[in-house]
């Protein structure tokens, strides 16, 4: 079973990672590079009191290939990591008699999106470069706690059989947002709000698509396991 979790995770992670790079380089990185123009001061929004600034990304071609190769490598590492954890979840669910296939896998993938991207984004919105935010370590702790609590809470809602389990799951999901993410008491953003908003929306939409592909691929591979 372990070998299947690892090989299946490797293959599903490679598929999701390649899909992630394709979507990110097409839809997200161009906005990120545009944000860097404001971060470095190459473009200034409201600098002269004029509310207008030029719209448009320098494009990914203007960047060194090594930078995008780094994005590719790190995406593969991340998505293989997520895929292995998803496969561990499949293994545990299968042991308790739950059947996994490509459709169920897609639902697992969407739950992964909610736990890893959507719930943390509620407190820590996706950041365009140039965004000044609270202390990194505090944000990392809140982010990790939110991911763990949301994933655990969703599992309790999905598999819990008692009202207490459902209640505990709902509390776990709500708790990080009641406590609140670390934030600053001032706004320091240098980029146009339209650009930041579009960046945040695209990060969420692109992540949802990647998680759906990861879940479907992982579920499809899972039922083809000789061990299941």
């Amino acid at each position: 079973m372990t070998r299947h979790v690892l090989t299946g995770g490797l293959i599903a992670g490679l598929i999701a990672g390649l899909f992630a790079v394709l979507l990110q380089l097409t839809f997200v990185v161009p906005l990120l590079l545009e944000g860097e123009l404001y971060e470095t001061g190459a473009r200034v929004h409201f600098g002269t009191g004029d509310p207008k600034s030029i719209a448009g990304s320098p494009g990914i071609i203007a960047e060194d290939v090594a930078r995008h190769a780094g994005t590719l490598a790190i995406n593969l590492v991340s998505w293989i990591g997520f895929a292995i954890l998803l496969m561990v979840g499949f293994a545990l669910a299968s042991r308790s008699g739950h059947r996994i296939d490509a459709r169920k896998g897609t639902i697992w993938g969407m739950a992964g999106f909610v736990a890893v991207t959507l719930a943390p984004a509620m407190g820590l919105a996706p950041e365009l470069p140039g965004t000044i935010a609270a202390d990194l370590q505090a944000r990392q702790i809140w982010w990790a706690a939110t991911v763990v609590l949301t994933a655990g809470g969703l599992a309790a809602l999905a598999f819990g059989r008692s009202p207490l389990a459902i209640f505990a799951g709902a509390v776990a999901i709500a708790l990080p947002h009641i406590v609140g993410a670390p934030t600053l008491d001032t706004y320091l953003g240098v980029s146009p709000p339209e650009l930041s908003a579009q960046f945040a929306a695209r990060v969420l939409a692109v992540s949802a698509a990647i998680w759906a592909v990861l879940g479907a691929a992982a579920g499809w591979l899972w039922i083809r396991s000789p061990a299941v």
């Binding site: 990120l32 780094g70 994005t71 790190i74 293989i80 954890l85 692109v206």
Partner: peptide, 29 residues
Amino acid sequence: LGLGLLFVASFSQAAVMHDMAHDQRHALA
């Protein structure tokens, strides 16, 4: 192993890892 891979890709603040992972970390929030 899965958590270890994610830690390296997402949380490690070693300069080389941060630079390589920069765009992907922003893109995944």
